[in-house]
Computed example of a mutant assay.
Amino acid sequence: MKMDKGLIGGSTILLLLSLLEETDRYGYEIIKELELRSDKAFQFKEGTLYPVLHKLENSGYVKSYIAKGDTGKDRRYYQITKNGKKQLVEEKKKWEVFSMSVNKVIGGESNAFA
C-alpha cells in the first residue's frame, strides 16, 4: 500500500533518528533499511531524504562524516549526536501520544477511556 506523504512527513524525524541510534548509516542505506523494515510502505527518494538529513544536521541532532564503504567508495555517513538522542526521546513521546489519541478516535467509544 502506498503511504500518504502527509502521514510519513510527520514521522520522518522519528524514523531517521531511530535508525541512526542503532548504527551510523549512509543515505542509500537509510532508504533501503526503511523500505525493508516497513515492507516497502516507506519508499523515500534521495531528494526527500537528504534535505531532512541536512535539517537534522543543522539542528545538531546528527553529524556527518566521510568514510570508505564496503566497496571502498567514499560515502557520507550520518551519526546521531547526544542532542539527537534527547530529541529521539521527545519524538517517541510525541508519537505515543499521537498514536494513542488516533487509536482512541478510530477505535470508537470502547477505547476512549483506555
Rank of each mutant, 00 (worst) to 15 (best):
N58K: 15
I30R: 04
Y65K: 14
F42Y: 13
M100W: 09
Q87Y: 01
N111W: 07
S110E: 11
L56Y: 02
T23M: 08
N103R: 12
F42I: 15
K92F: 10
D39H: 13
E29D: 15
K93A: 10
K5V: 10
K94L: 11
S99K: 10
P51Y: 02
I106A: 04
E90K: 12
L19G: 01
I31K: 12
L88K: 02
Y50I: 04
E57R: 04
Q87E: 14
K104M: 15
G72M: 11
M3R: 08
T71S: 15
S99N: 08
N111C: 07
A114D: 08
L14I: 05
K2Y: 13
K73Q: 15
G69N: 15
I13F: 06
K93D: 07
G47N: 03
L53K: 02
L56A: 05
K2A: 14
V97I: 15
K82V: 08
K2H: 12
K82A: 07
N83D: 15
L53V: 03
T12N: 05
M3F: 06
V105H: 07
N103E: 09
F113P: 00
E22P: 00
Y26P: 00
G10L: 07
K104C: 08
G47S: 04
F113I: 06
G47E: 05
G9P: 01
M100Y: 11
G60M: 12
I31A: 06
L56I: 06
T12H: 03
F98M: 12
S18P: 05
Y61H: 15
R37A: 09
K68S: 14
T23S: 13
E22D: 10
I8D: 03
G84V: 01
S11Y: 10
S38D: 11
G107I: 10
K63E: 15
E21L: 08
G6I: 04
V97N: 08
A67L: 10
P51V: 04
S110D: 08
Q87V: 01
L34E: 04
E46P: 05
R25M: 15
K85C: 03
Y78C: 00
Y28T: 11
S101Q: 07
T81L: 05
Q79E: 13
E91M: 06
N58P: 03
F42W: 07
P51D: 05
K68N: 13
L53T: 00
